[in-house]
Each structure stands twice: as structure tokens, then as C-alpha cells.
């Protein structure tokens, strides 16, 4: 049959050692990713941390050099920094609270049967695909009384005394970016929680139903425990992303009015981008990083306590 063309077993067609390949192959596959991440993220990260201890300002090019903790001392007495820290807290908390609960609600709805579900799902997830700068602009316009309806509605509801732009009101301005962020972020929670919901075996609900559980009982006894790990991880990741998320605020308010919407990440960006003071920007970034690390550790410890795995 084919015996004339078939090589005898064990006559390798000139190939490097099997073992060598077996050992080396995975490294070949990950090396592009690893090199990219190391060069573009990890190395700059180390440099960035080192900047925090230097004076690196493009506007004062002759005053570069190591300055020890000078940047941090300046930070400690910087009123803007403490204000930004407080704003970061409210911005993150407000955004994550509404994103999560509205996202969970949406995921639960999408996990039921109704007519036209596919279309509805594609449409409600759409805000996530809208480029951030565009979401920011759109919401800025919606809040603008000359071309947006929102101030008029709010006034009609009696929330505002007259239709004016809340983005210009230091007391209310933060609600603008938060609204935009909630709009943009609901789909993320809905998608991940929907995926988690769909992986809960249906028999569990049937069993609960046979056991006479009410809808609320099967939600708290089956759904929530199953979602808990996913909730813990997504809430943690999202919190960190939101705390770092400067685009929306930068476009909508630029941190104003009177720094009332200045959060740490926009402060970092404006310090680096407008003032070109990289040393100080890095010091703020390091402070933010430390805060987020503390947060992550607390959450991980809590998770270990609460979720028994």
C-alpha cells in the first residue's frame, strides 16, 4: 500500500528533540505577550514609581534629580489632593453602587424568557460599546439646558429650582459624571452576572420549587450564593477601574467647577498633561496605588472569610 512512501516509525523528519520542544514550546507561545507587557507596562511602572521620588518636570528641565520624599511632603499639604481623595471616594462609591444594583437587576431580567430577548440584550448592552469620550460628550450635552432635556425635566420634577446646568454647580456637578458612568457601566455587570446566572444548573431551581421555596427564597438561597464569587471579583475589579477612570470626568467637567469633580486620576492626568510635572503626578499615582492595594487586600480577606471555598 503506502509502505514505499511511509517513513519507518521513529525516523524523525529532522526535528529537534521532542523533549526540548516540549519544554520550550509554552515559552514560545507566551513570550510575545510577556515581552510586550514587561516593556510597555512593568518597566514603565517601575520608572513611574521612581519618578515619585524625583523632580521630573518638562517645564523646569534643569531641576531634575532625586528629591527623596519631597513630592510626598508636598502632597501631604496639598489641599487639592485631599479634596480629590474625598471626591474619588464619592465618585467610586456612587458609581459602583448604582452600576452594580442596576446591572444585577438587568442580568436577572435577561435571564428570564421574553419576546425579542436577543434584540433587547444587544440594545441594552450598547452603552458599553460607545466610546468613552462620546458618552462623556453626549451626557454633557444632555445636561446642558440649551440643547438637552434633562435640566428641564429635573426642574419640572422639582429637583432643580430652575433648569440650569448641574455640571456648573459645585454641589451637584459630581452627579453628572456619575450618571454617565452608571449608564456606561451597567452592561459590564449585566454581562458578567448574566454569564454567572446562566451557569447555575436549572435543576437547582426545580428542586427548590418542589421543596416549596418561594421566589425570594430561591433567590437568596440559590442565586446569591452562586453569584457570590463572581460578585466579589467583579466588584473588586470594577472599583479599581472606576477609581482609576479619568476619561469621563476629564471630558465632562475637566475636574471643575472649583475642583468639585477633581478625582485623583484626573488630578494625575492634568498634572502630567497640563503641567508636565511628572514627578508630582507619579507621587499622586503612587498614593492612589497604595490606597487601591489596601482596598484589594481588605476585600480579599473579607472574601475569604465570607465565601467558603
Amino acid at each position: 500500500m503506502m509502505s514505499t512512501t511511509k517513513p519507518a516509525p521513529g525516523k524523525p523528519r529532522a526535528r529537534p528533540s521532542f523533549y526540548f520542544r516540549y519544554l520550550v514550546e509554552p515559552y514560545l507561545y507566551i513570550s510575545p505577550a510577556f515581552v510586550l507587557i514587561a516593556l510597555v507596562m512593568l518597566v514603565p511602572l517601575v520608572i513611574g514609581v521612581s519618578y515619585a521620588f524625583q523632580s521630573v518636570s518638562l517645564l523646569r528641565p534643569f531641576e531634575t534629580g532625586w528629591v527623596g520624599t519631597e513630592n510626598f511632603q508636598a502632597l501631604w499639604t496639598d489641599r487639592k489632593f485631599w479634596l480629590a481623595l474625598k471626591n474619588t471616594f464619592w465618585w467610586t462609591l456612587g458609581s459602583i453602587f448604582f452600576q452594580f444594583f442596576l446591572g444585577l437587576g438587568l442580568a436577572l431580567l435577561l435571564n428570564t424568557h421574553f419576546y425579542g430577548k436577543r434584540l433587547v440584550q444587544a440594545l441594552v448592552f450598547l452603552p458599553w460599546a460607545v466610546p468613552t469620550f462620546l458618552s462623556a460628550l453626549t451626557w454633557a450635552w444632555l445636561f446642558n439646558p440649551t440643547i438637552g432635556p434633562l435640566p428641564h425635566w429635573l426642574a419640572a420634577l422639582g429637583i432643580l429650582s430652575e433648569p440650569y446646568n448641574i455640571l456648573g454647580d459645585p454641589d451637584l456637578a459630581m452627579w453628572g459624571p456619575i450618571t454617565a458612568n452608571v449608564w456606561f457601566g451597567i452592561p459590564f455587570f449585566a454581562i458578567t452576572l448574566l454569564a454567572a446566572l446562566q451557569s447555575i444548573p436549572g435543576e437547582l431551581y426545580e428542586a427548590a420549587e418542589i421543596d416549596g421555596a418561594t421566589a425570594w427564597q430561591s433567590f437568596t438561597k440559590i442565586t446569591l450564593p452562586f453569584l457570590a464569587p463572581m460578585i466579589a471579583i467583579t466588584v473588586m475589579l470594577r472599583t479599581i477601574w472606576i477609581a482609576n477612570f479619568a476619561d469621563l470626568i476629564f471630558v465632562m467637567t475637566g475636574g471643575g467647577p472649583a475642583n468639585s469633580t477633581q478625582i485623583l486620576s484626573t488630578y494625575i492626568f492634568t498634572t502630567a498633561f497640563r503641567k508636565l510635572d511628572f514627578g508630582y503626578a507619579s507621587a499622586i499615582a503612587v498614593a492612589l496605588l497604595v490606597l487601591l492595594l489596601i482596598y484589594a487586600v481588605i476585600l480579599l480577606v473579607l472574601r475569604r472569610r465570607l465565601v467558603k471555598i
Partner: peptide
């Protein structure tokens, strides 16, 4: 180790590296 490094990149503020990247 590689997985841990990748996770770390998801945790820190990307803005942190905006200055070094600009300089590089």
C-alpha cells in the same frame, strides 16, 4: 508568575505609567 504579573497589570492605575511612557 506570569499569570500574577498579568493580574497586577489589571490592578494598578494605568495613568501611573503615562509619564514614563511619554518619556520613553
Amino acid at each position: 508568575l506570569v499569570i500574577a504579573l498579568m493580574l497586577i497589570t489589571q490592578m494598578f492605575p494605568l495613568l501611573m505609567i503615562i509619564a514614563p511612557i511619554y518619556k520613553i
